[in-house]
Amino acid sequence: MMEVTTSHYVVLSTLLLLVGVVGILTRRNILVLLMSVELMLNAVNINLAAFSASLQQVHGQVFSIFVITVAAAEAAVGLGILIALFRNKQAIHADEIDLLRW
């Protein structure tokens, strides 16, 4: 089999992003939607780490740390919104929340 190159990592991260997009568009449970967002952010991190190694610089890894920081903030706020939503509407499915729908 051929040697593993940066392209392999890029293809892996594209596939992981695909799984995340499919998850976020097809599932109903908001918790799974948030998990799909985490999958997509991890695909980005794989890319950044792969290019950081291939360019012999640590800047990509520093960017990955910022991405993880933003992911933590996003998860905290998203889960807070989910708890508020569950408390007010008893809804944890995305298609049950149609207050703004005409």
Partner: peptide, 18 residues
């Protein structure tokens, strides 16, 4: 139900974009 009503168009759209 696990998946939303729009699952097939959504899957097609996601696969097209990706």
């Amino acid at each position: 139900r696990r998946f939303s009503n729009q699952k097939w168009p959504a899957l097609a759209g996601a696969v097209a974009v990706c």
